[in-house]
């Protein structure tokens, strides 16, 4: 098993089914329908720049909410008995195993007009619409990706050596400074991989906004989906821009932490 030949099928596979398709996106983005070189697709893509910005904002807000919800949860988890830890983690994973579309659909039922939430709040005298707005899209995103934030943060936190915490306490640190000077800095790799795992899919996904959002809550993924079937070139240009953005984001995240946390 010293041989490197075993990698050859995989390298060929990656070349044909990963690298060449990406190059094809690049080529398609710079050509017109007849195959001549042009910047036209990017000019057309520019029309969607506000959708692009809105997608990034929605993704950022969702990521931030996931972090705010997940961090205390992960911290509380590490304080529990091992068996209860495993139960809670399992409970978090179960909804993830249901189909992506069914999870979103479940929120459509819950939030719809005269749906359970509407009925319950009406009894309390609160009336409103809970679907068809940006907030509903963000709720959907948070629901979809919350476990992706909890799991890496929890994994990193549970590996923190309890001896370090005891040492800090022996040296006179109170609860707040134990948290701020030991636990928080040591959990940063988990935060970084959690943020990456939530931000990338929520910035690029589609359907969530179609089902839960209003007419102006279109995200860039929906635009790519809609446009690609009729105008490959513009679709490719938007995909390329999105890919560049995401890679810049990954590089920035990489600067904050060591590489292993990202991969």
């Amino acid at each position: 098993m010293k041989s490197r030949r075993l990698t050859i099928p995989y390298i060929i596979w990656m070349l044909v089914f990963t690298m060449i398709p990406i190059v094809m996106i690049g080529v398609t983005a710079f050509t017109d329908k007849k195959g001549n070189f042009t910047f036209e697709p990017f000019e057309k893509a520019f029309v969607y720049s506000n959708v692009f910005v809105k997608s990034l904002i929605i993704a950022l807000i969702s990521t931030a909410i996931c972090l705010v919800l997940a961090y205390p949860l992960a911290y509380l988890l590490t304080k529990m008995r091992k068996s209860s830890q495993r139960t809670v983690v399992m409970l978090l994973m179960i909804p993830m195993w249901m189909n992506f579309l069914l999870r979103i659909y479940a929120w459509m039922i819950l939030l719809q007009r005269n749906g359970p939430l509407d009925t319950a709040l009406s009894l309390l005298g609160i009336h409103g619409t809970y679907i068809g707005n940006t907030a509903a899209v963000i709720v959907g995103m948070v629901y979809e990706y919350l476990p992706f934030m909890v799991l890496p943060v929890y994994t990193v936190m549970s590996k923190i050596d309890p001896g370090l915490i005891e040492a800090a306490q022996d040296l006179g640190a109170g609860n707040a400074s134990v948290f701020g000077k030991v636990i928080l800095p040591l959990s940063i790799p988990g935060i970084i991989s959690g943020v990456t795992m939530v931000f990338v899919p929520s910035a690029s996904t589609f359907l969530v906004s179609q089902y839960l959002g209003g007419t102006d809550d279109i995200m860039i993924g929906d635009v790519i989906d809609k446009i690609f079937w009729t105008d490959e070139n513009t679709g490719a240009a938007i995909s390329l821009v999105m890919m560049v953005f995401i890679f810049v984001f990954l590089v920035i995240m990489n600067l904050f932490g060591d590489e292993e946390a990202i991969a």
Binding site: I20, I22, V200, S239, M242
Partner: peptide, 27 residues
């Protein structure tokens, strides 16, 4: 290098992978 290329499908957004494979398969 090989490991980074290998991680590419994990870090690149699903929609980009879907679209790029569609281009390849139609071609």
């Amino acid at each position: 290098i090989i490991q980074n290329v290998s991680n590419f499908p994990i870090i690149s957004p699903d929609i980009v992978m879907g679209v790029s494979l569609m281009l390849l398969f139609t071609f």
